[in-house]
Amino acid sequence: MSAGPYGALLDAVRGVRWPAARRVTGATLGAHPSQRRGNSSEFSEFRPYRQGDDPRRVDWRLLARSDRAYVRLTTDRATLRTTMIVDASASMAFPEPGLDKWRLARELAVGLASVAHSEADPVGLTIAGPQPLVLAPRARRSVILEMIRALDQTTPAGTSELEPLVTRARATRMVIITDLLGDAAAMLAAIRLRIAARVEVIVVHIVAEQEVEPPPGTLLAVDPERATTRRILDGPMRAAYHASFTGWMHETSASLTAAGARYVRALTSEPASHAVRRIADGSARRGA
């Protein structure tokens, strides 16, 4: 199975590095600096010898020069189990007919997974829909194609709850790709708990251009997930809508950031490869 329409994206993100935001605790050898100090060739620091240290790690040349015993510490690297949690609720199926939000969400999930996978990180996928689909993080070569197939077979519909999926995800790095129009408050609480458990959480907020600037004219706006929510959107209402929506985005960003997560806003007008780089580079700047 080929990558299909994702081929260009995968080519564009080849070579992008997505380091961990902090030292990882994994035991498997990987690309991310580990919290362990081990026997790799990358020198880290000298530490005075303490009783119990392995004598083979004593730097004899430094002993000869200083008459003091120091052990040589090196930096170990480990893998980072990464999972993508993708929101597949009805609000993601916007706007019609291209469903740009869902397209961007899929592309971001595939692109980020591809970047992580290229660094030997096990990657997994959770599609949050009425029937959640979970692909456990794997490092095997076919995992990206499996993710592509699972995403292509999904049509956003209904409502979904991200909080239980965030709570149960078995990963050290979690990328939540959502429009935050579902159970954002519950999800935030779960995120806090996962961050406290030293999980790196990145929330990618998918926003459509037409959500920021709805089409002109007088419209009867209807929420696709709650049909009873109907509001008139006309000239006098647009300013109030814009202020309310942007205010909510800022509040949400502040809440997630305060919780320790990383908030990234991705507009549907932005190429997915660009967003992937931005996310990866941002982690690099914040992290290790």
Binding site: F94, D179, L220, A221, V222, D223, P224, R231, M237, Y241
Partner: peptide, 21 residues
């Protein structure tokens, strides 16, 4: 008149005043 329907996921941010213009 009830204007044309537009599915907007962020409808909740539109002030709730009336459905007819």
């Amino acid at each position: 008149q009830r204007p044309a329907v537009f599915l907007l996921p962020t409808t909740r941010f539109v002030p709730d005043q009336r459905t007819l213009v």
